[in-house]
Design a protein around this nucleic acid. Sequence first.
DNA 1: ACATCAATTCGATGGTTGTCGAAATATCGA
DNA 2: TCGATATTTCGACAACCATCGAATTGATGT
Lengths: 101, 101
Amino acid sequence: MAVTNAKHVEITEDQLLLIAKALADPRRYEILKKLGEQRCPTPCSTMRDSIDISAATLSHHMKELEASGLVRSEKDGKFVHYFPQQHVLRAYLDRLKTDLA
Amino acid sequence: MAVTNAKHVEITEDQLLLIAKALADPRRYEILKKLGEQRCPTPCSTMRDSIDISAATLSHHMKELEASGLVRSEKDGKFVHYFPQQHVLRAYLDRLKTDLA
DNA sequence: ACATCAATTCGATGGTTGTCGAAATATCGA
DNA sequence: TCGATATTTCGACAACCATCGAATTGATGT
């Protein structure tokens, strides 16, 4: 049978707003989009090739994204790899649908 | 056949961020939720019965919500009635799903 | 006309946030 | 150990935003 990663995730009240905020900045949205398109673990430095942004600002945004739960990070030597957490996004969408639709 | 209001709505780049911002404030989220629960057209004054907020602040938030397209307003004498625009919310959810999931 | 009520606009204030350069930290290869 | 590279932290600044009281606009009923 197909495993669809269907584990149900609960979104806290805090997280609800953190996610909305995370999605409300154009650069974070772009980062998130690029991260989803990527096939392989993506370090900060690779992001900076395609998005015109200072290292400090990127680091700031990645922290916001991680705080929201939309991405997860893993340290790998001097690199940090980021992984989109699509199940969190899905839980967010479900929550909006339930609350507002 | 069931009519499901399936008209496709396009979300502009601007609107995408306006909606995310609109959803990122706890009071606006609450307003939106209450508006959806309501059966009848809801004026500002009714909102203020259930949400502790000044008239000025409420007016400000309603403007933001309307700018995002998530609600529509209709003037009725000295009242202003608000209507949630669920098809816009649905379009937003679809867009997030397409872009990020 | 007038008083009343709903809603908006104005002006000010305090807090938040995006931005970046510079400095610091951490890892790697030579 | 040393120099180069990746990332974070710090400090500062400007722009934005939520908030409210006061003044204003607009509609209603008397």
